[in-house]
Design a binder for these strands. Structure first.
Lengths: 247, 247
DNA sequence: TATAATTGTCTATATCAATAGACAAGTTTT
DNA sequence: AAAACTTGTCTATTGATATAGACAATTATA
């Protein structure tokens, strides 16, 4: 964190209990509240944040609900260990490889696929004419049973006809592209933003209202520069940090 | 955006008017509500989001306050043109160069500096012993008079004694490092996360409560791999997107 | 065993957030 | 000029949020 103990804002449209819950999450992430240790008592937290004890209790209740804390009557409230995974983004960005060593089990599920006309954004990314047929794959990435990403990928329907079936079978974008003669591909561009999770994010990623998602919009190309995939991915900020690796 | 029109969540700790304000911002960013055009009338928006017209009015009032919209009685509510800047992050990440062409005026202000013992995180990043003296520079980046970043940078106090004065004089990290014989430096690592703006962010970056900030934690090194700077930067998500460029 | 410390539950009250309806004020269209 | 449409203001009501205080239940400590 930078600077002073940050305080909270009233009349902001964000309830105090949620702001405090977010700050507790941040303190845990930064290491101010170590894992497996007890949080300061409710009264102390109330003093620190300048609110009533019951408001702090609401924040704690939300985090208990999210599985971040465990409260024990008479003893205290404890931080459960739950590290954020670090997802590397670089020239060769691959889901399963990237989380190797951080999660024992990881896979991608194909949620849905369809053929549709490319909108302007997708068409520009893939170098196609607006309205050209593209295949859209909706996928969810999981690590140790926890959803860690939700992505939509678009592919030229003429060149990659049947990639939806390949994806359903292999569970891997890389493997699916290999069937079309793509042995290697590179990340050409990535644009990053962040926003509050919307209703779809909450459902897809199993988040609580108010959660934040990181959003990447990326284009993958063959080694000789042909665009092959346009994608938009959402990552739950509470479970994933993006590590931008050297290329 | 992915999928359906996202709806809003009740009892989430985030007021409906703020969620709607965020969605309107998102719709503007995505192009669903084009710049300089009128928003749908309040009654239509209320229908779309499933809330009362007054709730929509609260959201619009907040965005008018933020300078995103302009409401005109009898005519409509209009989207002011205010594009998000795209801040490139790559091997050579330089503030002023990065925003060249997107903003006519851009500069960094040195807000504060101090000498302090390195905490574990900073020490690890710089390859120093925990507790070693480091110089901290607190800076704010502005583009066309609008704050677009707030950063803390740490430097080895022994090697870079006086860099605070150099920074105050030149207004450039790159120029200050040049005085210490650093002609070139590279971005070794960048870790990215997002969270709600805290009180300090609100003040430093001139944001409204509930805003989101992108946070990068990065290490810069000399071409031969010596770490010279550890930094943590915050970017207002509503004004900046991070473009991860090839290295 | 007694005391202190901590979380859990209850009641009560005040303020903010959201809904509902009516009508005024301004602009555009007919 | 009149009608239709849009934003602005007002009153009233309900539910969620936040504060305040008291005391119970459980655990750790003196």
């Amino acid at each position: 964190m930078i600077g002073q103990p940050s305080s909270i804002e009233r009349r902001s449209g964000v309830a105090l209990w949620r702001q405090i819950a977010d700050q507790i999450l941040h303190s845990i992430a930064v290491g101010d509240f170590p894992e497996n240790a007890a949080l300061p008592p409710e009264i102390a937290l109330a003093g620190r944040y300048g609110v009533n004890r019951h408001t702090v209790r609401s924040a704690i209740a939300a985090l208990v609900q999210e599985g971040v804390l465990r409260a024990e009557q008479g003893r205290g409230t404890f931080v459960l260990s739950r590290k954020r995974l670090s997802y590397p983004i670089g020239a060769r960005t691959r889901f399963s490889e990237g989380l190797q060593g951080q999660a024992s089990e990881r896979h991608i599920t194909l949620l849905a696929s369809s053929v549709e006309p490319a909108n302007r954004r997708v068409a520009e990314g893939l170098g196609l004419a607006t309205g050209a047929d593209v295949i859209r794959l909706e996928t969810r990435g999981e690590a140790d049973g926890m959803p860690v990403s939700r992505a939509a990928g678009w592919f030229d329907a003429r060149r990659f006809a049947g990639i939806d079936a390949a994806m359903a079978e292999t569970g891997s974008i890389t493997a699916s592209l290999a069937r079309f003669g793509i042995d290697d591909y590179l990340r050409q561009s990535t644009v990053l933003s962040a926003r509050h999770a919307d209703a779809a994010d909450l459902a897809d990623l199993d988040l609580q209202p108010g959660a934040i998602v990181l959003v990447t919009v990326a284009v993958n190309v063959t080694p000789d520069g042909q665009p092959i995939q346009f994608s938009e991915s959402r990552f739950p900020a509470e479970r994933i940090e993006l590590k931008l690796s050297a290329l």
